[in-house]
Simulated assay, not measured.
Amino acid sequence: MPKLEQFEIKKYWQIFSGLKPADNKVNHDQVLPILYNSKLDSSVLNQIWFLADIDDDDNLDFEEFVICMRLIFDMVNKNIDKVPDELPDWLVPGSKASLIKERKQRKQQENADLPKQETPEVDWYMSPEDVTQYEKMLGTCERSRDGTVTFPSLSWMVKSKFFNIGPSDMDKVWNLVNPRNLSSIDKDPAFYFIHCLRQCNDVGARIPSELPKALADICNKERVSYDLKSAQADVKKIVKNDETKADTTPRNDTSALDAPVDTITDVDALEKELALLDAELSRAKANNESTAAQNTARQLREQFEGLLKYRQHQTLEHSKKGHISIPINSRAVAEDLDNIEEQVNALESYLRNKQSELQSLEREIASFR
């Protein structure tokens, strides 16, 4: 490692003066832009700051600032592979030699007196106060149209809140809560993302290699699509008994739309489905189920309501034209209803899962009391 040169010290003085020191000292916030610009991991920067802050006052005078800058430059330029455990003698200012000696003695005494502590594990329990705080933090992030949040949006928010978190930490936790490698994630995984990084920042918790099973199930859950044109909605009803004959009716056949239907039966069925959805919505609100579950139920209800209005209009138009006896493609209509039935089943399954998650969390809360 090359020794300090005079031109180097002059360069550091220019940087130090530009930070507008008070009483010949700069604090952590003043040096923070330089630390971030180095692109070094937060754990490395913490080690450098600790070595440079010889008097442990969380400020750097010029001599300490020189130590900090030199270690940063050596790490960035690959002059050293890691931050040394102790400062080399040539980097210790003469005025700080006695403090360095005291620090070594104090460290030896602490190591002798205190039992070795392991790195704390992440505690995944979120208190109501935590959830409220994370709601506010998530509210500052830019959301996608479906309400999800992307990695860049989350990472910018985290950087502004947690100063001890580096890019590699965020990458690890993002992969942890987003195992399906989606471009954006729902609110629950986003909460766990913030919660984990907060503990890494505050208490130095170790990022786990995998989530607990209950949380993994939440982060792995399939997003339910309520768009009848989506691939998820393109399902076929299982053939029962001896019905093995394939449906050869083209799906773009407009005869089903031009015919009046069994429209009365169709309308009655839709009205019943709407009544069931209204009951489901009321139950979800009464049980204080998640906003996401209530929103998806509400969106599905709007789709049913639109289809009902269309069928009612179709019935009225064909009644006026006297086309009641025109035959229709009843198979296409039945298949549409089957698809709608699958959507209702998917919604009910989704709501049951949310209920199960809520009960699981309540049991966990009770276990801590």
Score class of each variant (00 low, 15 high):
F162V: 03
M157C: 09
K159N: 08
E129R: 09
M157W: 00
T148M: 12
P120W: 07
I185R: 12
I185E: 13
P167E: 09
E129D: 14
V203A: 05
T140Y: 01
P120R: 06
G139C: 02
I207C: 01
S155P: 00
N175T: 13
E110T: 09
K136H: 00
S184L: 04
T150G: 10
P212C: 03
R143Q: 11
M126D: 03
A190C: 09
D130P: 03
P115L: 13
I207S: 03
G204H: 05
N111V: 02
L138P: 01
Y134I: 05
R180N: 12
N181C: 04
H195E: 06
K116R: 15
E210T: 08
F191C: 14
C196R: 02
S184I: 03
E110N: 09
L138M: 08
D146F: 06
D202W: 02
W174M: 11
L176H: 11
T119H: 04
P128M: 11
G166P: 00
N164T: 02
Q117V: 13
E135V: 00
K161D: 00
P115F: 11
I194D: 02
R206L: 08
E135M: 01
Q109W: 07
P152C: 04
F191Y: 13
R206G: 10
E135K: 00
N164K: 11
L154F: 08
E142V: 03
K116T: 10
M137A: 01
E142N: 04
W174E: 06
T119Y: 01
Q109S: 08
S127I: 03
F151K: 15
S184R: 11
M170W: 05
T140P: 00
K159R: 09
W156C: 07
E121N: 08
F162H: 06
L211Y: 07
R198E: 07
L138V: 02
S153W: 03
Q117N: 10
V149E: 05
T150K: 14
P208Q: 05
S160F: 00
L176P: 07
T132Y: 12
I194A: 03
Q199L: 09
D146E: 10
V131F: 07
L197Y: 06
R198M: 10
E121Y: 01
I165D: 03
